[in-house]
Design a protein around this nucleic acid. Sequence first.
DNA 1: GGCGTCTCTGTTACGCGTAACATCATACCG
DNA 2: CGGTATGATGTTACGCGTAACAGAGACGCC
Lengths: 337, 337
Amino acid sequence: MSEKRKRPTLQDVADRVGVTKMTVSRYLKKPEQVSSVLQEKIQGALDELGYIPNKVPDILSSSKSHAIGVLVPSLTNQVFAELIRGFESVTEPAGYQTMLAHYGYSQSAEEARIATLLGYNVDGLILSESFHTERVRRMIKTAGVPVIEVMDSISPAIEQAIGFDNEAAAFAMTELMIERGHRNTVYFAARMDARTRLKIQGYERAMRKHGLEPFSLQTEQASSFTRGALLLRQALEQHKDLDGIFCTNDDLAVGAFYECQRQGIAVPQQIGIAGFHGHDIVSAMVPRLATVVTPREEMGRLAAENLLARLQGKPVNRSVIDLPFRLEPGESLRSAS
Amino acid sequence: MSEKRKRPTLQDVADRVGVTKMTVSRYLKKPEQVSSVLQEKIQGALDELGYIPNKVPDILSSSKSHAIGVLVPSLTNQVFAELIRGFESVTEPAGYQTMLAHYGYSQSAEEARIATLLGYNVDGLILSESFHTERVRRMIKTAGVPVIEVMDSISPAIEQAIGFDNEAAAFAMTELMIERGHRNTVYFAARMDARTRLKIQGYERAMRKHGLEPFSLQTEQASSFTRGALLLRQALEQHKDLDGIFCTNDDLAVGAFYECQRQGIAVPQQIGIAGFHGHDIVSAMVPRLATVVTPREEMGRLAAENLLARLQGKPVNRSVIDLPFRLEPGESLRSAS
DNA sequence: GGCGTCTCTGTTACGCGTAACATCATACCG
DNA sequence: CGGTATGATGTTACGCGTAACAGAGACGCC
């Protein structure tokens, strides 16, 4: 019973039928090229042995793996789950397998993950970051695989970027808050990555434009509901006149809102709250929170479509695709005056 | 410029140094086995050419890919993101790459994904389901890779299961609700998978034990905050005496709670609410919701540790590992009388 | 009957990193 | 100095699916 039975190969199937493995291989790819007598016999042998196709030899000789490497900073962040869902809605029907890796917002980890993915001969790469080390750029160039950067419409891209304008989005929301009378708005940031810095820039630009003093609270920790509550308590201590908070993502905003509830602070009368991304929760809760709705799934879909096109040899037509965002005022900002 | 420069191979590096590729291969694995003169030269050539290690030939000849296939029904469900985080916290330091695939709760899709993953010669599989088609069982047996099923401590496992007892967890929470005076509790279910059915069984067993009539609302849709609100409206129409709802996961519970807020229904005085899993949000919100806290990350970690042990040839010591869950009463149930 | 054409199957070679074994030079020993 | 141990490098073969080409038989056409 314990003979280590090896997984059957094409040769095993061929031997059983009495043909060469080439004929079996043909049957698997284009059954009509094989005589009908053999078709049946081969299918029978495949079933009996339980043959499982092995892609590895073909990857070795053709260097095409039909797998795409997707790098995200974090999986527990809903944004990236939705991005991946959009991406796979295109790649999966096209027969591409996703190799997912995450790097915890660390550039050196990103570098290592890219090397690993290229070691499996992925046909293409999706990166969720717009700033990369020289080594990363070099590896990608050497490997010669198409790459798309998502999440930000930053130029110049390595080859192609698909995203939205984080700076402009933060600027627009900040202006909306000011317009609604939240002039002493504090920015809540977590996980200081490149995108967060862009958002802070947008926030600061809007504040300064209106003659206001920007003030941001930053933490290296990951964002979470709990973190939002902590930041709110911290902000109340440091900034007595506080009348608004703009959070780098919805989690912080939701957490901050709950803390307001606990402290008996009226939202939006005393403090206005805005988040970022437009996840399901901010529109489900009472009150609905203001947020910047970003095109997560569409980014994923477009990235997949463009990558597949390039795998078919089509050239990059637009090196930067800037998708629109949308301001959702919700009920957590004061009424327009 | 457009000469299609191929990715450098070990041979290219070797040629540049004037040795055979075997020497370069040795340098990469055990540098001390190569003379110090060559060490420098080889490193220089590696850097110059930007050599990227290629795992595929080795996978072909050794059938070891150092990759593990992880199958989850859905990525946007936070539960699985946390499971994967726990899993990778062990596999990543051990040098294993995760190949993630999801199957949208469809058995035929699961079958196809498993075949694809085995096509890449993954060294092991993690499945998030405890019920499988005969073909799936056969494929796994034929491929001869170790498999671990997570999310439920169901026996018999294909080989090994690591999870918790969904039926008992639902039973326990239902009893707690009854004890707290929520005797007309309705069960909210979504995505009718095997685990949901087990939870419903636990709920029904508890209700019947106390002479109460079970009543569950089910939808094939994915669960979400919005869905929880819809189900609450539906429940109020169909069940006038309703004084409690127990949701198959936290998302539904949170959504149902917000709908109570909108309708001016007092929680927990009029309706008690309980969720399932213990995500961050239910303990951050006001009031904190009752929930069953499940060991998501630990399941992932344990699954990884056990799988790695088996890849090193250790036998399965416990075929079913039953992890504890914990009832968190929160503030959304009436006080103990 | 001879020739081209078509259909089906077989043959050969390829991709590339590494285990296992072979070889060679040097060092060390009694 | 013969013999053996040691270290460094080279040689060979392997894994397995598939592209490209080759061959064989059947058929049709003039």
